[in-house]
């Protein structure tokens, strides 16, 4: 029994951490129409940034600044934001494919850099030597995991609140107006590229927070954790939840993460040995089918946006148009 509860706590913690990333992506794609093809790079920047800043001193590579944990976490978020700023400033004035290609490229280059540059973050071995915050008081066991789950849920709630307030603010209305029609923003005297850049950065900082929490939870991060598949998983979560809808984004994260772990478990448990080598391939095909299938048959997601508050505060449409 305690095993099941332990597992549920573990599962919920990871799903909640990923939900935060899905929320960040939702701001970029769902609310601003920005394509982020390298979610994993911003996630990784947050993860590596947090561990490098907050970890204990290491001889082989950079890091071990032992900075107070909340500051280390914020440092990771800032790293992700900086990366988004560089990519955004170069691409957001061009047609939208450029952002897609550049963000995809960032992810490839990021993983490649961390795998090779051993002096930076331990190379393929990954980054160790991180003491989880408050670990001295709470130990490593069940108590700690419950505490950490609560911590993650609080941050998830805070992110959710923040985004709900943001998309109802004048800035959020501008984002939505621009997603529909760029001239609308121009006519208000706003620079669309700047608005998009702000949204890209905020979204990436949130994705960075998710990465920081992920690395904290495992007290370890390696290039294996920042492979492109994570980007696809996070997309699938948002597509299933319904782009533009924050509640759906969180629900999508839990649904897809459950499906992913269940399919992995099922394949390793029941599939014949020769198939097990291909577990990854089968799961990737499933994720691909989820993405394509949803776009073809249910583009609004399983949990479509119920209401959109117009400027006067009234409900003006019942479904997301995308």
């Amino acid at each position: 029994m305690i095993g099941i509860i332990s597992y549920l706590i573990f599962f919920t913690t990871v799903a909640a951490i990923l939900s935060i990333a899905v929320l960040g992506l939702n701001l970029q794609w769902g609310n601003s129409g920005l394509f982020n093809g390298g979610v994993v790079a911003f996630f990784g920047a947050g993860a590596y940034g947090t561990l490098i800043l907050g970890g204990t001193s290491q001889t082989a590579h950079l890091g071990g600044f032992e900075i107070f944990y909340p500051l280390a976490l914020i440092g990771g978020m800032v790293t992700a934001g900086l990366m988004a700023w560089i990519v955004g400033i170069l691409t957001l004035r061009l047609r939208h494919d450029y952002l897609a290609i550049a963000t995809f490229g960032v992810a490839v280059a990021f993983e490649n850099l961390l795998r090779n540059a051993e002096g930076l973050a331990g190379g393929a071995q990954g980054l160790r030597g991180f003491e989880r915050p408050l670990h001295a008081w709470l130990g490593d066991g069940f108590t700690y995991n419950v505490f950490f789950l609560i911590f993650v849920l609080v941050l998830l709630g805070a992110t959710y609140r923040f985004l709900e307030v943001l998309i109802r603010s004048p800035f959020g209305r501008l984002l939505r107006a621009m997603r529909e029609d760029e001239t609308a923003a121009l006519s208000l005297g706003k620079d669309p590229a700047k608005i998009r850049l702000t949204s890209l950065i905020i979204g990436s900082v949130i994705i960075g927070l998710s990465g920081g929490l992920y690395a904290t939870f495992y007290a370890f991060i390696s290039p294996q954790d920042v492979l492109p598949i994570l980007t696809f998983q996070i997309w699938a979560m948002l597509i299933v939840g319904g782009a533009g809808n924050n509640k759906g984004a969180v629900a999508g994260a839990f649904v897809i993460w459950a499906a992913w772990t269940a399919s992995g478990w099922g394949l390793s448990r029941f599939a014949p040995l020769e198939i097990q080598l291909y577990t990854g391939s089968i799961q990737f095909i499933l994720i691909g089918l989820v993405i394509v299938g949803m776009l073809l048959w249910r583009p609004q997601g399983l949990f479509p946006e119920k209401l959109v508050i117009s400027q006067s505060g009234r409900t003006n449409r019942s479904e997301n148009r995308e």
Binding site: G37, H96, G288, E322
Partner: peptide, 15 residues
């Protein structure tokens, strides 16, 4: 829109 096409193309590539 065009954005859905980009996502779809990633899905197709994975499959």
């Amino acid at each position: 829109g065009e954005l859905s096409m980009v996502f779809a193309s990633f899905g197709v590539a994975m499959i």
